[in-house]
Every structure is written in structure tokens, then in C-alpha cells.
Write a protein that binds this DNA or RNA. Structure first.
Lengths: 121, 121
DNA sequence: TCTATGATTCTATTATTCTGGAATTATGGA
DNA sequence: TCCATAATTCCAGAATAATAGAATCATAGA
């Protein structure tokens, strides 16, 4: 990932409404949510929300798919992972001891990978 | 970490010059770098750089310490870790299967923790 | 085809951020 | 005290982002 892409993603998430949108969409994975529902849930006018969704889409953090009359948005977790990798690499750059401290601290947020190797229910 | 703090940090990093500053300071851990050297290295006027450093400082991503006539800035990796944890938790929120996929992909960026348990040279 | 609904685009207004010249503050040395 | 250096603060102009009313576009159903 290039700096310019990372900056786009960071900028997209550094705005309260858009961060809320992204969190909402993560909560609604993998089904996604229509633009109208997102706007209603967060109490933002439809056109304003549309502008925010466009920013998130340009940043690659969400993706739209038409479904009948609605346009359903989904969070792109892969993109978030890429952004986080970019940040981590910046820190690691020749300094593995820093990175592993980060990793160790990140771990408790999740169960060990071994425990989730089965199919996702 | 509260949303407002995360937004502050994300906004701070979502600007080319400031992202460069942060990367430069990470590279210069743990010694840090005086404001003037940062400005010179990145070819940015001193007062402009001062404004950017203030933004990064307010976001908690760097911290200044006077050293004689200079003010030496250091990257705060702990803060970066906190921001990344915030983002991860947003994704995990009741969905460990998503998070562990993220973790698994983050791993290759670093050597295994076991290999860095010795003192940092 | 006509209508209603969901969503976006157009446009203008307001607010915020970025930038750098000039002035100011803080420190160390002569 | 006086000067030079390092850095910040003050300020204003330019650029960018956020917001929302009105108009437009796309689809589904009658």
C-alpha cells in the first residue's frame, strides 16, 4: 500500500460520522446495509450521508452494490487490515523489537487463531 | 481510548507532511530529533513544521522535550498501539473470527515474539 | 407509461485546515 | 547585558472539507 492510499483511508476514518458509518457496517457484516438505513440510523440527511459514503468508498473502506432499488454498503475489512499493516511496517522498519511489542499487546484483543479455525457459524 | 482521541490521531496522520514526520521520528527512536532537524530534513519552513508538530503532539503521537536550545521530539509508539487497538476492537466487536484473520495477516510483518525476548541491542 | 421510492449529483454556504511571513519567546555563550 | 540561535505564536490568505436544499437519476411495481 502506498502512502497516498493510507492517507486517504486515515482521512476517511478521521471524521466522526464516517467512523460511525464504518463501525456500523462492520457490525452488519457480512450482510451490509442500504444507504438509507445508514442515514436513518445515524440521523444524517441522505445527501450528506451519500457524500460521506463516497469518501469511504474512494478510500476503499466500503463498497456499494445495488440491490433492487437500494444500494447496499459493506465494510471492507481487508482494506482496514492493509492500512494497519502499513502503519505497523512504518513502526517496524528495521525495528522488529518495537513491532513485536505491538503484536503482543494486540493479541489479548482476540482469541488465539487456533480457536477459530473451524467454519464460521 | 475514546472515539474523539482516535479521530484526533487518525486526522494527525492523514496528512502527508505529518505522516512523514511520524515515520522520521520512528526511525530516530529512541533518541528523537530536534524540531529544526525535522524541518530541514523534510524541507518545510520552521513555522509550518511547528504547526504540524503541534497537531501531532495534541494527538499524543509525539512528545516534545526541551534540550538546551532545541526541542527534541520523539514518536510515541505506545499511542500508535492504542490507536490500532481501537481500530481492531471496532472490527472485533463480537466477531472474533474477523479479528483473528487480521491478526494472522499482521503476523508476517514481524518475527515471532520468541525471537526478540533478549535485551534490545 | 406513470408513480413512488431510494440514492446520488448539483450547487452554494459555512467551517476548517494548510501555509508561510513577521513578530515574539526562550536559551546559551561572549 | 547583548547577540545569535532554536522554536513558537500571531496573523492572514488560499485551499479543502462538511453540510444540506433542490434537482436529477434509477429501479420496481401498478
Amino acid at each position: 500500500m502506498e502512502s497516498v492510499d493510507a492517507i486517504l483511508a486515515l482521512a476517511a476514518l478521521s471524521q466522526a460520522t464516517r467512523l460511525d458509518v464504518f463501525r456500523l457496517l462492520v457490525k452488519h457484516e457480512p450482510g451490509g446495509l442500504p444507504a438509507g438505513d445508514i442515514a436513518k440510523t445515524l440521523a444524517v440527511p441522505a445527501n450528506t450521508m451519500s457524500a460521506h459514503l463516497a469518501v469511504l468508498t474512494r478510500a476503499g473502506l466500503v463498497s456499494p452494490r445495488r440491490h433492487g432499488r437500494s444500494i447496499v454498503y459493506r465494510a471492507d475489512l481487508d482494506r482496514l487490515r492493509t492500512v494497519m499493516l502499513f502503519l505497523l511496517r512504518d513502526c517496524c522498519g528495521g525495528r522488529p523489537e518495537i513491532c513485536s511489542a505491538l503484536m503482543a499487546d494486540l493479541d489479548p484483543c482476540c482469541p488465539s487463531p487456533a480457536s477459530v479455525e473451524g467454519p464460521i457459524s
